[in-house]
Design a protein around this nucleic acid. Structure first.
Lengths: 244, 244
DNA sequence: CGCAACATTGAAGCTTCTCAATTAAGGTGG
DNA sequence: CCACCTTAATTGAGAAGCTTCAATGTTGCG
């Protein structure tokens, strides 16, 4: 609809633990709680793949036969509505797990924002492993819990904040996420378009653009380039979105 | 702030499996996947309690030492913001589990909407049981997953729907939830105030009131009383909120 | 029965959206 | 490597929808 899936090449390549399962902060992904031999069990059922910009890993309604671990780039999770509107429910970055659905079908669509690399697992294989590895089962639970808390924060941003407050909350969230996976907290890099951000925050893309301009006028941020935003005063920005 | 916690009486009473652990639809709660002897392990660590209208089970920031199962009434989960605004992130009904937090502290506040009964478990005891009962561990995972999917739907409602569409989506959600726990799907009973609904949908409470009036003018619903809404045409209502 | 909390309704104002025009960025082929 | 073309982003003006403020009506509880 708004984002056409391009044909894009999908290439498998040799498995590499350091890229696929221990990518980014080790405690953020599925493997952080596993022993070395347990990790090896995982490596046997994993396949690494690349997706081009806009290409779908899966769509809402597809059979949820696969789960993924993001290793490079960014993934956009979204819900499509009948009238062409789209809600982005989350952005995933390296280290993030993808595949919680609670059913036989995916409830959201997952697409690569620009280019992305992921590890793909058969859900059935993962299920089998979970029975053998209690640590894995528990780690998956913790990740689902963490996603739930993040979704509740997202709900609060959508329901109670003004356009500019939403924008500030979004920039701070990206900054924190980057730091959490070992990157810099400033400046913030935006792999997604203004429209992606708008659909995440429940705004029109013109409003996103206007809010960024306004924040720059107030010297709170500097738009170093379209996709790179410098946060000039973390304390002032935190105040701005009036954290609970 | 908006909802003052009243002193309310909190009384423990004898444990009763049929009310506490097998309340409502059996497959909706924590115990649906357990064998009889496993259920008995659970009964040993549970305590039943009653909360009065507005009384808090716990508040954001409290040590998350307890988890709960709702057995009667309704619970409101909310986030407070510094400026006095409040976002209701969910309503829980009999059969629902309460206590996913992903941390040592609760991330939301839980309050009884009117009166409510719950089963309280020490998290540490539950953790111990999870190690012994893989089925329980897995069931908790499934419930967290289900909550995550519900939160994503909530996000979509908040981000993309108009005030009236939000209202319709809310009524249909309550109807479905009631049916899922063995109740009637029509009329819908609203234990919460217009302000609670407004804070759930990201609206002003006056807007909630106006939307209900408008829907009644359009013959889509009948306001049988303040707290009882009859849905006159499910198909038309489903169309109205343009499900994805 | 009366008071306090909850709900409805109206009118004005403000934030955000929509529509439209312009500018900037990115990718492709010559 | 540059020119071109497409997509993305910015900016402006007007309209729409929701909120805010205010007044009135209703419900339910002590």
């Amino acid at each position: 609809m708004k984002q056409e899936t391009k044909p894009g090449q999908r290439s498998s390549f040799a498995f590499d633990v350091s890229r696929c399962l221990v990518c980014g902060a080790r405690n953020l992904n599925m493997c952080g709680s596993l022993e070395k031999d347990e990790l090896e069990s995982l490596t046997k059922i994993v396949r690494c793949e690349t997706f081009g910009a806009g290409e779908a890993l899966f769509r809402e309604g597809d059979s949820s036969a696969w789960v993924f671990n993001v290793t490079d780039g960014a993934i956009r999770l979204s819900n499509m509505l009948g009238n062409g509107k789209r809600q982005v429910v989350g952005f995933l970055f390296p280290g993030d797990f993808l595949g919680f659905t609670g059913a036989d079908e995916y409830k959201v669509t997952a697409e690569a924002v620009r280019g992305a690399k992921v590890c793909r697992f058969a859900r059935s294989e993962l299920t089998r492993l979970r029975h053998q590895l209690p640590q894995l089962e528990h780690r998956l639970f913790e990740m689902a819990e963490s996603d739930l808390v993040a979704a509740q924060e997202h709900i609060t941003i959508l329901g109670q904040k003004s356009a500019t407050e939403k924008m500030v909350a979004f920039l701070l969230m990206l900054s924190r996420k980057s730091a959490a996976r070992g990157g810099v907290d400033n400046p913030v890099h935006l792999p997604m378009t203004r429209e992606d951000i708008a659909d995440f925050l429940g705004l029109a893309f013109e409003t996103v653009s206007r809010c960024l301009t306004k924040l720059e006028d107030q010297k709170l941020i500097t738009i170093e380039s379209t996709r790179v935003i410098r946060l000039n005063d973390f304390a002032a920005l935190e105040d701005y979105c009036e954290e609970a």
